[in-house]
Structure formats: C-alpha cells, structure tokens
Computed example of a mutant assay.
Amino acid sequence: MRSHTQRLMVCAASFAALCMGLAGCGSNTASTGGDSGEVVNLTYMHRLPDSEGMTLVKDIVAKWNKDHPSIQVKATKFDGAAQDMIKKLETDVKAGNAPDLAQVGYAEVPEVFTKGLLEDVTEEAAKYKSDFAEGPYS
C-alpha cells in the first residue's frame, strides 16, 4: 500500500504531465486515484496570465477534475510578482499550509531550492520520465 506522500507525489507528477501536455509543452495508479479509493485533493498555486487565446488554467483543471474524479485539484492564481509569491510560499511552508503544487519559473528554482521549499520527487518522477521533455525533466 502506498503512503499518503507517495500517492500525492504520483498525483503531482500526473497533474504536471497533464498541464504540460495541454499547454503544448510536452494507465497509472494516479489516474484512478488512491489505492484505498479515497478522493485525493490537491491545491495548486500559479501566476500564469490566463490571457485571451491561451489555454486557461481553470479549463485545464476542470478537464483534469472531470477525467479524474478521485484526484481533485483546486487552482489558485497569485496576482503578484514572482518574488512576492516566493515570500508567500516560504511563509506558508513554515506555517504548514503551503499548496501541494506551486508553479515557479526556472529563474526562481534556485531561490526556492535554497530556502528549502522544494520536495525531492526524483524517485516518483522517474516513473514518468517518458512523459516529459528532457529539459524540464532534468
């Protein structure tokens, strides 16, 4: 039986692959939910512009939630600068109420890494390596 953390990482990897695929960037247990049949709820924070002509995050999330009823995602758009979002994430991590997933740019990865805001998902991500382009995967 998988632990809650392992199920969460499988879900996170699956959701990330879905987002990348639907955004044009690139059968597992995550697609059917947790082993116990319980609903897994994920929170996702992003700063994407959701501009006209783009695939909207709310549409991606709605499709995901429809196609995966046992893995539900709630997206929250952060309307501030990248640095402000990192400050919020740092505060939320310390308070124990950080989102399950947060989308940050490549430029912000070193800062969120040095602040200890990243989870090592190498083991789980390796199972889905073929779903990612080489650059984002590495």
Rank of each mutant, 00 (worst) to 15 (best):
A75V: 09
A75M: 05
A75T: 14
T76C: 06
T76M: 08
T76E: 14
K77F: 02
K77S: 13
F78L: 02
F78W: 10
F78Q: 01
F78T: 08
D79E: 14
D79G: 14
D79P: 03
D79R: 06
D79W: 07
D79H: 12
D79I: 11
D79N: 15
G80I: 03
G80E: 11
G80D: 06
G80W: 08
G80M: 05
A81I: 03
A81D: 11
A81W: 00
A81H: 07
A81N: 10
A82H: 08
A82Y: 03
A82W: 02
A82S: 14
Q83S: 13
Q83T: 15
Q83C: 03
Q83R: 12
Q83V: 12
Q83F: 03
D84Q: 15
D84H: 00
M85K: 11
M85F: 07
M85L: 15
M85G: 05
I86K: 13
I86P: 04
I86H: 09
I86W: 04
K87P: 05
K87N: 15
K87F: 00
K88A: 13
L89T: 00
L89G: 02
E90Y: 09
E90L: 08
T91Y: 09
D92W: 00
V93N: 07
V93P: 01
V93L: 06
K94C: 05
K94H: 09
A95M: 08
A95Y: 04
G96H: 10
G96T: 14
G96C: 11
N97D: 14
N97H: 14
N97A: 05
A98S: 15
A98N: 12
A98E: 08
A98I: 12
A98V: 10
P99M: 06
D100S: 12
D100Q: 11
D100T: 14
D100R: 03
L101C: 07
L101S: 09
L101Y: 05
L101E: 07
A102E: 01
A102P: 10
Q103M: 11
Q103S: 13
Q103W: 09
Q103Y: 07
V104N: 03
V104D: 12
G105M: 13
G105Y: 09
G105P: 04
Y106L: 14
Y106I: 15
A107Y: 07
A107V: 05
A107W: 05
A107S: 11
E108Q: 14
V109R: 02
V109K: 03
V109D: 00
V109S: 01
P110S: 07
P110E: 04
E111W: 00
E111G: 01
V112Q: 02
V112N: 00
F113E: 06
F113V: 02
T114A: 00
T114P: 02
T114R: 03
T114I: 10
K115T: 01
K115G: 00
K115L: 15
K115C: 01
K115N: 06
G116N: 08
G116I: 10
G116R: 11
L117Y: 01
L117T: 07
L117V: 10
L118F: 02
L118Y: 02
E119C: 11
D120Q: 06
D120C: 08
D120M: 04
D120F: 05
